[in-house]
């Protein structure tokens, strides 16, 4: 086999491997890092990485991200059920403040839903 033909084959193999890689990435996209999605009135208002720390304010609701988990720290709702809920950290977990129309839920690698 001459050098030109060998290089042609190598180039073709490289292109084939790249195409396969692109195909696999599209079929099995990398799982995103865990995040806390804040939904207000049915629409996503923010996506907060769980590996950060801080407080996000959504109306009267304060959402705290700390130590890899999220919780509703404060709310103007009357019964404070959401505030009493334990922090959430696993994909599929969610906390709702129904009176304020706010929900936080964990997305990323892990179960689709938790019950």
């Amino acid at each position: 086999m001459n050098k030109t033909a060998r290089n042609d084959i190598l180039l073709a193999v490289a292109i084939a491997l790249a195409a396969v890689a692109v195909f696999l990435i599209r079929i099995f996209p990398a799982a995103p890092a865990q995040s806390c999605e804040v939904i207000h009135a049915g629409a996503t208002e923010a996506v907060l990485p769980l590996d950060g720390n801080g407080v996000y304010v959504c109306g009267s609701v304060e959402i705290e991200i700390s130590d890899g988990s999220a919780r509703i720290k404060k709310s103007g709702c009357p019964e404070q059920i959401c505030v009493k809920h334990k922090p959430i950290s696993r994909s599929g977990e969610a906390v709702i403040c129904a009176p304020e129309g706010v929900m936080i839920r964990i997305t990323g690698e892990g179960p689709d839903f938790v019950q």
């Binding site: 999605e37 939904i39 049915g42 969610a94 709702i96 129904a98 129309g101 706010v102 929900m103 997305t107």
Partner: peptide
Amino acid sequence: SAAYTDVFDTV
């Protein structure tokens, strides 16, 4: 994904 908070008093 989408979420609704206004049906059946739950998420």
